[in-house]
């Protein structure tokens, strides 16, 4: 669906709006911010960036492991900041930018506190346990905040915990726990997260932040399955078509979800790009041994034709969404 900005600018480009009236037109269309929107934006920016920088600064500080401060001093300092963030979150509430920024800080400081425990008492815990506990402990806060950014941090922690687990136990089940297995697991986890995210988004009102957070998940899942499809084509002597079937199933799911059930051009454009890359790799694998020069030309032309067809189709879908 075209954004109001695109429509107004398109009218200005075609001369329906005088150039000097463009700023006024954008303001009337609600595209450019008024003073209230500026205040809200600056408050959110200053608070969230301030909380992020302070929390990461505290994490850096404890990662440095400064010996000039004793064990009790370190715990006192960190727990003091942690409690201050928690109190601020409680005081302002999760609906206000100040409360949300405090929740962000408390979420990050939870990890710092866990790391300090491990660093001080040498618990022998693996790194994956740190991230897993971190993710588990912040669930109530993330749930209360209902903030997409915090949910994405939670999913990132889950991904890290899984990745670290695979690093800690690379040979437990032999070849099953290879790097590719990790990608399959992460693809499944992020795919499930995407489904839950979309179902939750359908039940609630669409916030002012639009679909960026859902698209981050879609992009991550799509990147993983594309890499897995490339591995199925390029990593072995023969193409593993069975694994490619999962890729095709993913493409079908994307089409069903973002073309039939609802329309999301970003997801469709990503799917088109992924298809172009995978088909180019498959043709390269099948053709380039026997027909080098002509093979390069053929694949180049196929890539051009597929991407052009994709753009033509995406424009049709966009026009349909506008109606």
């Amino acid at each position: 669906m075209s954004a109001p900005r695109d429509i107004v600018v398109d009218w200005a480009e075609r001369g329906h709006i005088r150039s000097e009236d463009l700023p006024k037109a954008l303001a009337v269309a609600g595209v450019t911010p008024d003073s209230r929107a500026w205040i809200r934006f600056l408050a959110t920016l200053l608070l969230s960036l301030g909380a992020l920088l302070i929390a990461t600064g505290v994490i850096f500080f404890f990662a440095y492991n400064w010996n000039a401060i004793g064990r009790f001093g370190k715990f006192g300092l960190l727990e003091g900041i942690f409690v201050a963030a928690a109190v601020a979150a409680w005081f302002y509430g999760p609906a206000k930018p100040a409360g949300q920024a405090a929740l962000l800080a408390a979420t990050l400081l939870t990890g710092a506190l866990l790391a300090l425990v491990g660093q001080t008492y040498q618990t022998g815990a693996d790194t994956y346990q740190l991230f897993a506990w971190w993710a588990a402990l912040i669930v109530p806060w993330v749930g209360v905040s209902r903030l997409p950014a915090l949910w994405l941090i939670w999913i990132a922690l889950l991904n890290l915990a899984i990745a670290m687990y695979f690093r800690a136990f690379p040979g437990l089940l032999g070849v099953v726990f290879s790097g590719e297995s990790l990608l399959w697991v992460l693809f499944a986890v992020n795919g499930v997260a995407s489904v839950i995210w979309e179902l939750a988004a359908r039940r609630g009102p669409q916030g002012p932040q639009g679909r960026w957070s859902a698209r981050v998940l879609i992009g991550a899942t799509g990147s993983m399955i594309t890499i897995l499809a490339l591995a199925a084509i390029l990593d072995r002597t023969n193409v593993e078509y069975l694994r490619l079937l999962v890729y095709v199933a993913w493409l079908g799911t994307m089409y069903a979800c973002y073309r039939r059930i609802s329309i999301d051009l970003f997801a469709l454009a990503g799917s088109v790009l992924s298809t172009v890359i995978v088909v180019a790799a498959l043709l390269g694998k099948l053709m380039l041994d026997s027909a080098e020069a002509s093979g390069f030309l053929f694949i180049g032309l196929v890539v051009i034709a597929m991407s052009a067809t994709g753009a033509w189709w995406l424009r049709r879908v966009a026009a349909e969404a506008d109606r």
């Binding site: 075209s2 695109d6 429509i7 600018v9 398109d10 075609r14 051009l265 970003f266 454009a269 990503g270 088109v272 790009l273 172009v276 890359i277 180019a280 020069a293 002509s294 390069f296 030309l297 694949i299 180049g300 032309l301 890539v303 051009i304 597929m306 991407s307 994709g310 753009a311 995406l314 424009r315 966009a318 026009a319 506008d322």
Partner: peptide, 27 residues
């Protein structure tokens, strides 16, 4: 007029254009 092309469709065209270009250079 024609529906404005979103940035991600243009990004897709750009990346695919580069892939196609390298195959043409290889040819």
């Amino acid at each position: 007029s024609i529906t404005p092309t979103p940035w991600y469709v243009r990004a897709m065209l750009g990346i695919a254009g580069w892939i196609g270009a390298w195959f043409l250079v290889a040819f």
